[in-house]
Design a protein around this nucleic acid. Structure first.
Length: 805
RNA sequence: GCUGAAAUGGCGGAAUCGGCAGACGCAGCGGACUUAAAAUCCGCUAUUCGAAAGAAUGUACGGGUUCAAGUCCCGUUUUCAGCACCA
């Protein structure tokens, strides 16, 4: 072809982006005739810093799938929105005296422009923001439904308080005793908080995992976080006359229970203080434990401490032995019953404690050496010193002892979860107001649904307060209202919802974003749900991903949504690190700004590099030279126009390579092996260069394969060369021809005693049966074995032949 | 501490089922083009020995199974991630 213009990414990309925008090229079709496909990326938080190089990794990956599905004939909904409530915006607003809603608007505009510049095929017509009252009307609506069903409750409780952010945090937001957002030390603070009963859904959230296609580590992490365990509750009779109930997963070891431990906060200490001779000592221990921060508690978890209660003993219900009761902070009030039976022979913590305080250790499961270490194996151990359990395996003994406890009325089967309820209120301005009022006569009363949305009022100051009150509390005009039930004076809740509220259901709103009478129409949801493929960060596994599954399952239970699970498939991308292999951060000075790369190399090269740099699910250091190499590849693709011939078909000598590439690229995109898909296209292009020519037919296929990754340049080449009479995005995905993948001869390796001695071409249809005769007749084979007797000949068709002499 | 994943050239990585280790890219070296440089195109590029043909070694380390091991088994080291007294 003559008159090839120079490749100018900026011009080409602007042109096609405008074209797509004007034509709404990626708007999901209203009709439900076609099969649907709903891919989703986690909607970004529109920070002032703009897009990070991490965003395009996930976005491009799903964009490739979305674009491929459109070519395959699906009706695709690939939406975008903004998770815009949150602390950084509020902080910026406070510092610069701008209303957070204005900051949010500016940041969203910036993000929108950056996303468009990267050519993502989002349906921008459905763009949403969680801060839009038309949106958060429905976030509040869902909260009221939870409240109505008894799943939201307010409770005075010690919470995780971040003194830097001046806000309470959910358990999921505390990482190693530090605040997830600012890294500051988290302290305990007693506050009255709204809680959501996610624990009621613990079992459903575990069971639901069986029916979805999530990558294994996500399932494992969610299961561990929910932490289901099966065991029994057993009552121990105390000398005080009380029954002390413990939870244990090892009821089979009951005969080995040589002492008991209650947590320092256990109510028994107060209710029986008159019997406790060393009450002062116990209280001093409790206070010392309370002063320990979470950090100290975990740091010191190897060194056990405790105090024996003087004055109360317990009776082991099966042996009748009197055993002591201790207080120790290795037993937590928040799990089980806050009390345990200690079996030092078969529990590591109890073993350590018993060694330190010289308490008896009785072996009841044979198989280890309990003087050396606790024996915790539950597979092979056999019960001993346990009367009627003797000789049984652990699993059998568990069943037998529970039956016994039930028959005596002193115990029963019990399932426990580590999952805690979700702390749902935040003492902040920039969040969804909680639509409840407190009435002195009626208690907490829900706002009627027709009064939603309850909009955020304008306030003078968004500053959080040190006393733990939301800035809204100072707005007396807004706070003082009337009770919707009795009409008397009442006050609004002034805490707001956490950032996780708006993101717990946003994928539903995309389906029907302008609906003012429902959160989304059932008919539309029946067509679009569930989300077919959701890619996002591992850091959200026990936060957003779990929370949104909980909300969705609740909405399903009350008949609002048609599917029990929101997401069919979940994958996760690896982080992009700085060039030094460290996490990108301003302080390290290794941050790469996507805009700079797009300016220098173009969006297509940037997208291509983000997909080519390495395995999609692994952390990869950034390399600007590597990105440059991807730009070089696109330059080479562009220059292929110089030697393109007018032939429409695929030339005979390239047939195998072209069809193998179609197969490879299609399969690799689906498996998120973008790096090898791109490598195979690079090899194909190298082949055309080696040959010095490419046909129009070959060019057409290459453009179709490359289009999902590099949509602008391929569209431009398609137009310049009139490869198709329509845009590539309206093209069908190419199919490969099985017969073209069959070769007449294949190159195999020739091994002698397992060592490669050469390569040779053999007929592709050579079978194992004919192999021996075929190979031993060859001169080169005879030369290599040099007359030695052949012991064995192994032939793997298409791979190698190995002659053992 | 427990659990899980991983370790491959100078670098990022590839090798789908136990079957030719190092695809593809980066960096480097050489050549062509050019007054020159850049760009581009072509070639080389795991290590050691060798002029070459070739040979030996080689996928964190030590063993093992197999005709054949990056891949499977046992042990060790290191790195990363998750959980962190959940009875």
């Amino acid at each position: 072809m003559n008159n090839i213009p120079k490749y100018d990414p900026a011009a080409v990309e602007t042109k096609w982006q405008r074209h797509w925008n004007e034509n709404h090229s990626f708007a999901a079709e209203k009709s439900h005739d076609k099969p649907k496909f709903y891919p989703l990326i986690e909607f970004p938080y529109p920070s002032g810093a703009g897009l990070h190089v991490g965003h395009p990794r996930s976005n491009t990956a799903m964009d490739i799938i979305a674009r491929k599905r459109r070519m395959e004939g699906y009706n695709v909904l690939f939406p975008i929105g903004y998770d815009a409530f949150g602390l950084p915006t509020e902080r910026y607003a406070i510092k610069n005296h701008i209303h957070p809603s204005i900051v949010t608007k500016q940041n969203i505009a910036h993000f929108h422009a950056q996303l468009q510049r990267l050519g993502f095929s989002f349906d921008y017509d459905r763009e949403i923001s969680t801060t839009d009252p038309k949106y958060y009307k429905w976030t509040q609506w869902i909260f009221l439904k939870l409240f109505e069903h008894g799943l939201a409750y307010k409770m005075e409780m010690p919470i995780n308080w971040c003194p830097t952010c001046k806000v309470g945090l959910a358990n999921e937001e505390v990482i190693n005793g530090k605040c997830e957002k600012c890294g500051g030390e988290v302290v305990r603070r007693v506050k009255s908080q709204w809680m959501l009963k996610i624990t009621e859904y613990a079992q459903k959230l575990i069971d639901g995992l069986d029916d979805v296609d999530f990558i294994e580590r996500v399932k494992v992490q969610q299961r561990n976080w929910i932490g289901r365990s099966e065991g029994a509750e057993v009552d121990f009779h105390l000398s005080s006359g009380d029954a002390l109930t413990v939870y244990t997963t090892r009821p089979d070891t009951l005969f080995g229970a040589t002492y008991m431990v209650i947590s320092p906060e256990h109510p028994l200490i107060e209710s029986r203080k008159e019997l406790i001779k060393n009450y002062d000592e116990v209280v001093a221990y409790r206070e010392a434990a309370a002063r320990k921060s979470d950090f100290e508690r975990t740091e010191m978890n190897k060194d056990k401490t405790g105090v024996a209660i003087d004055g109360i003993t317990a009776t082991n219900p099966v042996t009748g032995t009197q055993i002591p009761v201790w207080v120790s902070d290795y037993v937590l009030m928040g799990y089980g019953t806050g009390a345990i039976m200690a079996v030092p022979a078969h529990d590591e913590r109890d073993w350590e404690f018993a060694k330190k305080f010289d308490l008896p250790i009785i072996e009841v499961v044979a198989g280890g050496n309990v003087n050396e270490a606790a024996y915790t194996d539950i597979q092979d151990g056999v019960l001993v010193n346990s009367e009627f359990l003797n000789g049984m395996k652990v699993a059998e003994a568990k069943r037998a002892i529970i039956d016994y406890l039930v028959s005596k009325g002193i115990g029963h089967r019990k399932i426990n979860f580590k999952l805690r309820d979700w702390v749902f209120s935040r003492q902040r301005y920039w969040g969804e107001p909680i639509p409840l009022v407190k009435c002195p006569c009626c208690g907490w009363v829900a706002l009627p649904y027709d009064q939603l949305p309850l909009e955020l009022p304008e306030v003078e100051s968004y500053e959080p307060t040190d006393n733990g009150e939301s800035p809204l509390a100072a707005m007396t005009d807004w706070v003082n209202t009337t009770c919707p039930k009795c009409g008397g004076p009442a006050q609004r809740e002034t805490d707001t919802m956490p950032q996780w509220a708006g993101s717990s259901w946003y994928f539903l709103r995309y389906i029907d974003p302008f609906n003012d009478s429902e959160l989304a129409s059932m008919e539309e949801m029946k067509y679009w749900l569930p989300v077919d493929w959701y890619n996002g960060g591992m850091e959200h596994t026990t936060l957003h991903l779990l929370y949104s599954r909980f909300w969705h399952r609740f909405l399903y239970d009350i008949g609002v949504v048609p599917t029990p699970e929101p997401y069919q498939k979940r994958t996760s991308h690896g982080m992009i690190l700085g060039g030094d292999g460290e996490k990108m951060s301003k302080s390290r000075g290794n941050v790469i700004n996507p805009d700079d790369i797009v300016d220098k190399l173009g969006a297509d090269a940037f997208r291509l590099y983000e997909m080519f740099m390495g395995a999609f699910d692994q952390a990869i250091p950034w390399s600007t030279e590597g990105a440059q190499g991807c730009r070089r590849f696109l330059d080479r693709v562009w220059r292929m126009m110089e030697f393109m011939t007018d032939e429409e078909g695929i030339s005979e000598d390239m047939k195998y390579d072209v069809h193998a590439c179609i197969k490879k690229v299609g399969e690799d995109y689906e498996r998120m092996k973008y790096n090898t898909a791109i490598a195979s296209m690079m090899s194909l292009v190298n082949g055309f260069y080696a040959k010095g020519s490419v046909t129009r037919g070959e060019m057409r296929v290459l453009m179709q394969l490359l289009n999902p990754v590099a949509p602008h340049i391929t569209e431009e080449i398609n137009e310049l060369c009139h490869l198709n009479d329509c845009e590539l995005i309206r093209n069908a995905w190419p199919a490969y021809d099985e017969s073209a993948l069959v070769k007449a001869t294949v190159e195999i390796a020739l091994q002698v005693n397992g060592k490669v001695r050469g390569r040779m071409d053999v007929p592709a249809d050579l079978t194992r049966e004919g192999a021996s005769e075929y190979f031993l007749a060859l001169d080169e084979v005879q030369k290599l074995i040099a007359g030695k007797p052949v012991k064995k000949l192994i032939f793997v068709p298409g791979r190698l032949v190995n002659i053992v002499v």
